[in-house]
């Protein structure tokens, strides 16, 4: 697991049924692009988060395919529809096989 990777998510704690809400996600990750060289001239191998998904009660909100051009500490802002109370599940997939997760619960009414 890459060191010091932590997510930070903004999701509303409550919403009206059917409301569209703005979600902001951040995760601290170096996103080593594979373009850099170390002081000996050797290429530092690529090591990035290559996919991010957000689901609400199992339904897909957004599924992002990520490339090295996404900046260090990947940030995404997007919108989701809240049909009823439930949970957001955020998942980040690392090149090295690690999976990072975060959950946020939303109350309705």
């Amino acid at each position: 697991m890459a060191k010091g990777v932590r997510p930070r998510v903004k999701a509303p704690r409550s919403a009206e049924a059917g409301e569209v809400v703005v979600i902001k996600t951040l995760i601290s990750h170096k996103m080593e692009s594979g373009q850099r060289k170390d002081s000996d001239g050797n290429v530092i191998p690529r090591s990035i988060i290559n996919r991010f998904t957000c689901e609400y009660n199992g339904a897909m909100v957004v599924d992002v395919e990520m490339h090295p051009a996404i900046s260090t500490n990947p940030y995404f802002e997007f919108e989701a529809t809240i049909p009823e109370a439930g949970d957001f599940q955020f998942t980040w997939y690392d090149d090295d096989g690690s999976v990072y997760e975060e959950t946020k619960t939303v109350k309705v009414g």
Binding site: V61, V62, V64, F78, E79
Partner: peptide, 9 residues
Amino acid sequence: FNFGDASGA
């Protein structure tokens, strides 16, 4: 970015 059924915009 692939938008799913629960997407809001």
